Computed example of a mutant assay.
Amino acid sequence: MTTAVSTSPVSPPKPPAPAPRKNGPRAWATRAPLLPALVFLIVVTQLPFVATLVISLFDWNSLNPDKRSFNGLENYASVFTDAALRDSVLTTILLTASVVIATVVIGLALALLLDRTFFGRGMVRTLLITPFLLVPVSAALLWKHALYNPEYGLLNGTLSWIGELFGDTSPAQPDWIADMPLLAVVTALVWQWTPFMMLILLAGLQSRPAEVVEAARLDGASAWQTFRYLTLPHLRRYLELGVLLGAVYIVQNFDAVFTITAGGLGTANLPYTIYQTFYQAHEYGLASAAGVVVVIGTIIIATFALRTVSSLFSEEANRA
């Protein structure tokens, strides 16, 4: 005896209805304390940027205020075609790349050193962080007068002391800023920003799974193999974060160039050129256009930095 089987299709279960959005008085009450901060943020950051954006569309020289006129995007064309601005863009790229690469390499070496246990590690860590705690102008003045000065600077004093040890009573006394201006600025920035990179990479090293490193050592992996195949891949996100944040800060650097070389000898980067265009040439429209270009470039770099930070937090959350 056969039993009839129903072949009618079974309807799939309906997806749950989305939860209703909470837009009632209670939701607005929880958001209300944030409104003053939001208004303050808009007034302080966004309104000045909008004003800069509007000024960048005008041919505006403060020495001739009556001749102000709307010129559209001509100021932006001048930013990319003017020889001085173009040279400052190239100087900014060279300065940023040099400082970031040097700080990452030195910061990684110092982070690997501080990741080990040795006597006085806390004192060494404090001393290495100190340059980052100085005000940028103070750090630049320190390098300009205490180290680079050809007459009483520490560098030339050290050369004189070494020369006297070998019987040379009159060793060469180079003028560091005049002979190698861009390198002088790069060295001062590397000294100040290396602790920043070191802290980021040290945090990455201390987040390594200790059992994985110990297992690699028990399997006979050398120190280089452990670094190459375990430490370096683990630090990839932290290296990206350090490079991106370092680039954001160095691109905007003004203090070292202004203090050490005053923008001379081919060291004028884009922020210093904007300063010259605005305060010395009084070209408000052209300076505003260059400032907008810098802001857009910084936003692009910061976007990648924020994505890197978000991925780091996601990895740590998944690991937990």
Rank of each mutant, 00 (worst) to 15 (best):
N64L: 14
P233Y: 05
L35D: 03
A203G: 15
W60S: 02
V124S: 02
I177M: 02
A84I: 08
L241E: 00
A287R: 02
T277I: 08
L183W: 08
L241Y: 12
T126G: 15
S78A: 15
R21S: 11
V43K: 00
L110I: 10
S11P: 08
G266M: 01
A27W: 10
L182N: 08
Q252T: 01
L63E: 10
S56F: 05
A210G: 08
Y229Q: 09
T187V: 15
V54H: 09
P16I: 05
A178H: 12
Y238N: 12
F58C: 04
P18A: 05
G107Q: 03
H282R: 13
H145A: 10
V10A: 11
D175C: 03
V213R: 08
S78V: 11
W60G: 00
D175P: 06
G263Q: 07
V104M: 11
D219H: 07
M1E: 10
V295E: 03
W176F: 13
L127D: 02
R307W: 08
T52H: 03
A51G: 14
L244W: 06
L218S: 12
P131R: 05
V99S: 03
H145D: 08
A281V: 07
V79T: 09
V293N: 06
A146N: 08
M197T: 09
P18N: 03
S69Q: 14
I250G: 05
E164T: 07
E315W: 01
L95C: 06
I299L: 15
I299H: 06
L306D: 07
P131D: 04
L112H: 11
F254T: 00
A317G: 06
S11T: 12
P15R: 07
T103Y: 03
I106V: 15
P171V: 04
S56N: 01
V294G: 02
F227D: 04
K14M: 13
E240T: 11
I129G: 01
I296A: 13
T45N: 14
Y76D: 02
L38G: 09
T103S: 09
V89P: 00
V190M: 01
F119M: 11
V5W: 07
D66R: 13
S138Y: 09
T130C: 09
T226G: 12
V309G: 01
I301K: 01
V292G: 05
E151L: 11
G122P: 00
L57P: 05
L127N: 04
